[in-house]
Amino acid sequence: MATPLLSIRDLCVSYGNITAVRGISIDVEEGQIVTLIGANGAGKSTTLRAISGLVKQTTGSIKLRDTELTALAPHSIVEAGIAHVPEGRGIFANLTVHENLMLATYCRKDRDKIPEDEERVFSMFPRLKERLWQLGGTLSGGEQQMLAVARALMMRGVIMLLDEPSMGLSPILVQEIFKTIREINQDGTTVLLVEQNANMALKTASYGYVLQTGEIALHGLSEELADDPAVRAAYLGG
């Protein structure tokens, strides 16, 4: 088996005396969509924050190919190729849609490629093109989620981390956002997808991990997880 693109080994993360993540290991192969599912408070967002360097691990390692990420500052982790769509979208309400997109290119060296990425983003999300000069804060929830994903595309990372992209969206928009995730993956971006919506996540991903109070309870191919009685009972409504 080839070395994974992203590999997390024995990761532990604490907030003060609360241990949120207890020794998890996750592999993401290049070109895959891997999902991390689990109940509220299981430690999914903490795992993504650790990858992005927003929280420091107590022990463990996170590698993007050969680069150890745990030693890097958040902006260097972006430079290394991580594009993180944070929980709650993190749109800058005081910046225009265009500025939100441009900010995501802050540390890119290949400035000449930015216009073509912009075109790609606009063809994927025509709505954003219409809203380009509006402040981020004036967008609807669905539009903000599009913008959050669009920003991550503008970062042109090798792997995109998505933290509950379906949260707070109507069923139609949820379908749309998962369709977009598959498109992005088909265009060559590896995806690590965090979801509470286990049903959609397992349909979209090829491999899945189930996180339970900070530990990996189960992992396997998505179809197998979707058929697992324990997973069905706990996350798929029986």
Partner: peptide, 24 residues
């Protein structure tokens, strides 16, 4: 400018700015 934009972003939300690659 990009720097000015980054200043306004950091002013609004430092964590997200750093996730966008801004050296806060």
């Amino acid at each position: 400018t990009m720097t000015g934009m980054a200043m306004r972003a950091v002013s609004y939300d430092k964590t997200t700015a750093s996730v966008m690659g801004v050296p806060v």
